[in-house]
Simulated assay, not measured.
Amino acid sequence: MLNIADTLSRWCREDRPFALATVVRAGGSAPLPPGTALAVGLDGEAVGSVSGGCVEGAVQELCGQVLASGEPPVRASFGYSDADALAGGLTCGGELEVLVQRIDPAGQPHLADALEQATAGTPVAVAQVIDGPQRLLGRTLSLLRDGSAYGGTLGSRQEDRTVAGRALPLLRAGRTARVEVDAGPQKLTLLVHSSAAPPRMLVFGAVDFAAALSRAGRLLGYRVTVCDARPGFATAERFPDADEVVVERPHRYLESTGVDARTVVWVLTHDAESDVPLLRVALGLPVGYVGAMGSPRIHEHRLERLREAGVPEERLALLRSPTGLDLGARTPAETAVSITAEIAARARGGTGLPLSRVPAPVS
């Protein structure tokens, strides 16, 4: 639901009831992941998507029925083989399940608060019951980044504490995911929607490749920083797509800046004098990816220098170099595509193979 937080927040401020359809399960080649939502207002206005177009009409119709009748939340499944005339089926060949519920903002002020926080860019999570006792289906609990629940309840204080404990790691990681919770006498399945600050991309080396990588990183939703010790090279004019350009010794900057498990670090300097101290710091941090440009021969030389600097083998194994997928890239733009493609493949569990050669359904 946080993918349409801005519109839902406005509807809540205007105290406009709406029906919310949330993807709670997706399989095969379904185009949109769990957590994606579509909402329909009383006037028929619709926002968001659950399938990229395949079954939008059917879901909107179901939303209208739930909104008008005030009936309890309902679940509906859609798939390629659906014979249901209402469903029509997913022409992409995937399968998805949605939970449709009526939201009355006046009765759920905590949800309105969470949507407003998400719209403002404040890290927030909404834990939504998607399976369990009918009386709890669709209920939500909202959390801030520090783990404090500032509204909503799932039925009891014990359940709220248990769910908060499971949701907090997902919020800190910026992940939306299903969780199973054994809360006292009953088991619940929840979908934790997380809205976190954009992940960071730290690019070291103010070179042409960094400009292309900044552009690609911004397109993928990263907050991009370009860092170089040379003030004549590290300028905002040379890197208009970077969110910030820092003039500082790379390893000094990396030691002092904030990172997390979603942060990606790229070293493009080709300078052993700065590469080694920088990579020594990077390989000791809890970041998601560390990559360095260079040929296999340069990489082997770099590894020897890092061993001499005391970096253990298990940390050296985390270094991706040469960085990127084998696309035959030559230009900075092609290299940026190669590098970001590897990041996407690792994050999503992709093979890096052409889709025409992947036997399993595209997910």
Score class of each variant (00 low, 15 high):
Asp84Phe: 12
Arg135Val: 15
Leu67Trp: 05
Ala118Tyr: 11
Gly57Gln: 09
Pro105Lys: 01
Pro31His: 03
Ser81Phe: 02
Gln60Tyr: 06
Gly52Ile: 06
Thr140Tyr: 01
Glu97Thr: 15
Leu32Asn: 05
Thr119Gln: 14
Ser69Arg: 15
Leu111Pro: 11
Gly52Val: 02
Leu111Lys: 14
Pro72Thr: 13
Ala106Thr: 14
Leu42Gln: 15
Asp104His: 05
Val55His: 03
Ser51Ala: 04
Val47Arg: 11
Ser81Lys: 05
Gly35Thr: 14
Val66Phe: 10
Val23Cys: 12
Leu144Glu: 12
Cys63Met: 11
Ser49Asp: 08
Leu42Arg: 14
Asp113Glu: 09
Leu42Thr: 15
Gly53Val: 06
Leu111Asp: 08
Gly94Leu: 00
Pro123Val: 01
Pro34Ala: 03
Gly89Gln: 08
Val124Arg: 10
Ala26Gly: 10
Val98Asn: 04
Leu20Phe: 05
Ala37Asp: 09
Leu38Val: 11
Glu61Cys: 11
Gln65Lys: 15
Arg25Met: 04
Ala85Lys: 05
Val59Lys: 11
Ser69Val: 14
Glu56Ala: 10
Ile130Asp: 00
Leu90Asn: 06
Leu141Asn: 07
Pro34Leu: 06
Ala76Tyr: 14
Arg16Asn: 08
Ala118Ile: 02
Glu97Ser: 12
Gly64Glu: 09
Gln108Val: 15
Val24Tyr: 04
Gly57Ser: 12
Asp146Thr: 10
Val129Leu: 11
Glu116Phe: 00
Cys63Lys: 04
Cys12Val: 06
Val47Cys: 12
Ala21Met: 13
Phe78Asn: 03
Ser142Asp: 04
Ala46Phe: 00
Gly79Arg: 03
Ala39Val: 04
Ala68Thr: 11
Gly94Ser: 00
Gly94Gln: 01
Ala68Cys: 11
Val100Ala: 07
Pro34Met: 01
Cys63Asn: 06
Gly70Arg: 08
Gln65Tyr: 10
Gln128Thr: 15
Arg139Ala: 13
Thr122Gly: 02
Thr22Asp: 06
Thr22Cys: 05
Ser29Glu: 03
Arg13Val: 13
Val124Glu: 03
Arg10Lys: 15
Val50Pro: 01
Gly48Lys: 01
Thr119Lys: 15
Arg75Tyr: 03
Leu32Ile: 01
Ala125Leu: 03
Gly121Tyr: 06
Thr91Leu: 05
Leu144Lys: 14
Glu71Leu: 12
Val59Phe: 00
Glu71Phe: 10
Thr119Trp: 09
Arg139Gly: 14
Arg102Glu: 08
Ser51Val: 00
Thr22Arg: 09
